[in-house]
Each structure stands twice: as structure tokens, then as C-alpha cells.
Amino acid sequence: MEEIGKPCRRAARSSTEESLFEDEVLETVWEIREKSEAVRLADVVEELGNEESIRRMQANGLIMIQDDKIYFTEEGECRARDITRRHLLAERLFADVLDLTDYEEDACRFEHVISPEVEEAICTFLGHPPLCPHGRPIPKGKCCELYAKKVQPLVQSLKDLEVGKQAKVLFITAPAMDRLASMGLVPGASIRLQQKKPSYVVEIDETTLAVGEDIAKGIYVKQA
């Protein structure tokens, strides 16, 4: 099994041009490796250009190049996993929570600036998602390992809440949210999930509300 969550030496987050480029290379190599066994230098060069700088990374101890194929060093792999993880988490955050559609570029910038603490908080907030919005696996972090030992995510959608549990509404991205709001389903409201099938039924104080799955998906709660 892949070793996870091991802290690795990170390039200074001052985001020098060089470290930014290194990150791009590492991320690209990681992504190609997801799909194929060997990563050809030519493919990476085609994607990012600047063969010279890529070769220089060998000297920095991040990658090894043999027979025109690129391999990670231990440190390189660690950094590649981190940067990919931050990128894909950012995508999830932008797509699911902020409901953005055009987030690619922002996710690329975001990945370079967040600290491990923020990264972990986002991961927990999102409920340790296994895949990015495009279906790529998100590398696991230390927090995910803990989660595997049954730590409840901070935020989950109503869809994932257990039947019979109490929870507090944190935010709502569901369609028709204005109408739900006027019936008392607002951030801060305490709710209880009565059932999920054949439709979701939630109790808010003395109000009982039935909602379809599309709406339930967009109601984010924190279990009480």
C-alpha cells in the first residue's frame, strides 16, 4: 500500500518561478503515471516545454531520467502527491461547495499557496473525497487515514447523513433554496433526518419537510 501522509520537504511557498515550474512538472508526471506505466520525457516536454529546466530537476534530486523516461525520487514523489492532492481538493471545493464551473485556473494557483493545515481542513470539510470532479483519484493525506478509522467528516451533505441523526445546517446550495429558506431551512437550523426513502424527510423544530434527492444533495450539515 502506498505510504500516505508522510510530511515531505516542500519547496518554499514563496512561489519562485522555478519552484512553480517544478510543481507543474511533478504534477504532470504524476498525472501521466496514473494512466501509463512509464512516463516519457518527450510527453512531458510536449506538455510543458523547456526540456532544459526539466533536466535540471534531476540535479535538484526530484526526478531521475533514464532512457528518456522520467522516474520520481522519493522526495519528488512526495512533493508530486502533495501538489496533486491540493490541486484536486481545490477543484472539489470550487465545484461542489462554491458551485463554480470555470475553476481550472484558480485551482492551479490555489495549489501553490495553501499550507498543510488549510489543506487538511479543506479535506476534512469536504468529507475526504476520494475522487476529483473529473474522476481522478485524490491522493490521500494524513487526515484521510484518521478518517478511515471512523472519524466523521465535519461537513456532509444531507444525502450522506445517517437516518435518525440530528444535525445543524451549515450551508445550502440546493435549487429552490429561497423557498426552503422561507420554511425555516436556513444555515444554523437544527434538523433531524427522519428518512431517506422514498423521499427525504427532515424535521426542523415542529416543521416536517419532504425533499427530493436533488435538494438533499445540496444541503450541507454538520452532525450534532
Binding site: 440546493a174 435549487p175 429552490a176 423557498r179 426552503l180 420554511m183 423521499s199 424527510v201 416543521t207 416536517t208 419537510l209 419532504a210 425533499v211 427530493g212 436533488d214 435538494i215
Partner: peptide, 10 residues
Amino acid sequence: QSEFFLEIPP
């Protein structure tokens, strides 16, 4: 298609 939500009386 509109979303389903309905208040359920006692």
C-alpha cells in the same frame, strides 16, 4: 423539472 419539496402536516 422542478424540485420536490413539500411541507408535511401532522
